[in-house]
Design a protein around this nucleic acid. Sequence first.
DNA 1: GCGTGATTACTCGGATACAAGATGTCCGAGTTTGAGCGG
DNA 2: CCGCTCAAACTCGGACATCTTGTATCCGAGTAATCACGC
Lengths: 135, 135
Amino acid sequence: MKYSKATNYALHTMMFLATAPDKQIGVQQLADKQGVSPTYLSKILTKLVKSGLIESSSGANGGYRMKRSNEDVSFLDVIHAIEGTASLFNCSLHGNQSSECLIQKEMVEAERKMEEHLRNQKIQAFAASHAAHIK
Amino acid sequence: MKYSKATNYALHTMMFLATAPDKQIGVQQLADKQGVSPTYLSKILTKLVKSGLIESSSGANGGYRMKRSNEDVSFLDVIHAIEGTASLFNCSLHGNQSSECLIQKEMVEAERKMEEHLRNQKIQAFAASHAAHIK
DNA sequence: GCGTGATTACTCGGATACAAGATGTCCGAGTTTGAGCGG
DNA sequence: CCGCTCAAACTCGGACATCTTGTATCCGAGTAATCACGC
């Protein structure tokens, strides 16, 4: 039960893109900053593209950039794009509908509280107020 | 990023033990209820014993039972016993102290909110108020 | 100069390799209960 | 009836097998900008 490194890379990349929302930034440069291979990072960023958080352009001088229409992308959006949106806990009691499991209900409620916090943290605002600290 | 099945089994087992805090219950019976092999379940319960949440006795008529001294074991205690207590998110930026990473700070804060909820859910109280629904 | 094709610098996506962790099984060892047996 | 022994029922723990998932690499294909060349 841990967030994957992919989520890590995705969040850091989003933060970096948010500091220069207009520029195209190549995957090579993004990968160098984080010490990860470009091909692997591109795989992760593809998920963000498919989720509509960023957009990419091919060819020379290509790269990734924030999608203009999304001014208020949250931490949760990024996490969901990478980790998926399924519930963290699924009751595995045989012959029991998970909707009936009271333990599950509590676990989902707890998860909801975490998500609520992450939904309120916007990438743009975070990057703006902490620009000096983002490498 | 999911809770393991082991956590699932652990929570259900705790709930069941809590409905009869005085009885010794064999691993065979507990395993049957959940459709899991006894030896595997015993592996999980060993973790709960080492964390001091329950106790076991060997030999004939042996088994597991709640520890009397712990009247207010929470969901979080059980989860921590199985999943460990490490933070869900660790900044993997090279050459960066994770304590400096602002993203990490937000993630930990979100996690803290989930844990707060789980800390307030006590196994005993939960079992008592929902006894009829626990299989 | 001006199109046209080649080159270059990129991203994209599938296939594959590798490692780690979750899941589960097997078995030998130790422990307690209880039954059986001999005195 | 008492005490001893032995078998049965049980947990404990390590070793092992398997499966899934995360992590990462490689390479061929597609695409856009730029450069070179010929007219």
